[in-house]
Design a protein around this nucleic acid. Structure first.
Lengths: 148, 148
DNA sequence: GCCAAAATCATACGAAAGAATGACGCGACG
DNA sequence: CGTCGCGTCATTCTTTCGTATGATTTTGGC
């Protein structure tokens, strides 16, 4: 939050400054009006992009990877076990990908986070599962019904 | 909120001061106004694009809607698949232990062979399974019904 | 606003894992 | 007898894992 406020203030300030600056020079260097026009256009284009992105960008797009479900017993019985073990949603997410045989690097690319972050999640999840290896973690997760 | 306004005003003031300073220099180097203008414009466009891109960034999250599967109804159909893939009995034995979450060392101790031997079996089995990691091998083995 | 839980990332280090290669013994089979 | 598949083992080297530690940022409640 703090950072955003700062950025916002900075951008705003710069904007004001730019406006005043151009205003002043319009009078002095009126022959370059076209140039300033272009500048302002670019400026506003940038601002537009910024505003547009900020206002319309979905903070988080949910991509559903649908698969032919054959929902047999319980589609989601995890939540309980997950909660009980203190495993966070993100950690569970990582666990699922681990179970799919992905490497830490690949998991990172899939979730758009760094490999280091994946490692952190893994370590914590393994700890909570009482597992020392990813293969063991996968086994325990399945036993506990955390993953399909 | 109050704090933000303060920061905003402060930054704005500082920038205005900066403006006056630059203004002075612009009078001296008025012929480079355009250059500065372009620089600032580029800077702004860059910032805008950067921010936009950053906010538009595919910050998606993989959500597993349903896990499926429809897994076949045969608990032990290994022999056939094993034969077909050219996986030797010993390799399969190792695979089972890998699926149990054991390390190569532990597998070696279990089967009374050296860790190196286990590695060899693993490598060959992984190759035959088209797997590059033990977790992947476990997944494939289960899919193929090689192991329970 | 402030706090706690989550999530993110980095750096460093030791421990596994995995690839590549070569080698040896053993039983089966032609 | 030779060779072929299988199991065994070693060595070297690169990559990946996993742990430890600390820091910053987000986020959700209160």
């Amino acid at each position: 939050m703090r950072k955003q406020v700062l950025v916002f203030g900075l951008v705003g300030g710069v904007l004001i400054t730019l406006l005043q600056w151009t205003e002043f020079h319009f009078l002095v260097l009126e022959h370059s009006v076209a140039i300033y026009g272009v500048l302002i256009a670019i400026l506003f284009a940038g601002t537009g992009i910024w505003l547009g992105a900020r206002l319309f960008a979905p903070r988080e797009r949910i991509v559903e990877v649908a698969v032919p479900a054959a929902s047999s017993p319980e589609p989601v019985a995890d939540e309980a076990a997950r909660e009980r073990l203190g495993i966070t949603p993100r950690e569970l997410e990582v666990l699922r990908l681990v179970a799919r045989g992905l490497s830490n690097r690949e998991i990172g690319e899939t979730l758009f986070v760094s490999e280091n972050t994946v490692k952190t999640h893994c370590s914590r999840a393994f700890d909570k599962l009482g597992a020392r290896r990813r293969t063991e973690a996968v086994k325990r997760s399945k036993e506990l019904g955390l993953i399909g």
